[in-house]
Simulated assay, not measured.
Amino acid sequence: MFLTKLKTFATAAIIAVTGMTCVTHAVAAEPLKAGFVYIGPVGDHGWTYAHDEGRKAAEAQSKGGVKTTFVENVPETADAERVFRDLAQKGNKVVFGTSFGYMNQMVKVAKAFPNTIFMHATGYKTGANLGVYDVRTYEGAYMLGVVAGKMSKGNKLGVVASIPVPEVIRNINAFTLGARSVNPAITTRAIWVNSWFDPGKEREAALALISQGCDVLMQNTDSPAVVQAAQEKGVLAFGWDSDMSKFGGKAHLAASVLNWSVIYKKTLDEVAAGTWKTGDLWWGVKDGAVNIDNFSSVVPPAVKKVAEERRDGLKSGKLHPFTGPLKDQSGKEFLAAGKVYSDAELKKMDFYVEGVEGTIPK
Rank of each mutant, 00 (worst) to 15 (best):
K348S: 14
E76W: 05
I186R: 03
V216L: 10
V298E: 13
I163W: 11
N115L: 06
V109A: 02
S211T: 13
G140K: 10
E309F: 04
R85P: 01
V285Q: 08
F175P: 06
K56R: 15
S223N: 04
F247C: 05
T77K: 10
A29T: 00
A302R: 02
S195C: 11
L217A: 10
W47E: 05
M106L: 09
M106F: 00
A229I: 01
A174R: 01
K318I: 04
S245I: 06
I172P: 01
L32Q: 04
E53G: 15
V285P: 05
T275I: 09
K67T: 12
E333R: 15
A148Y: 09
V66Y: 03
A29M: 08
T275F: 01
H320R: 08
V147T: 07
F295P: 06
K305D: 11
G131N: 09
S99L: 00
G145Y: 07
A12W: 14
G249W: 03
Y142K: 10
F247S: 08
A208E: 14
T48L: 03
P199M: 09
K56N: 13
T24S: 03
W260F: 11
A273L: 01
T116A: 03
L144S: 15
H25V: 15
P164D: 07
W196N: 06
Q105M: 12
A78W: 05
D52Q: 09
G97I: 03
V306G: 00
E333V: 15
Q212W: 08
G358K: 08
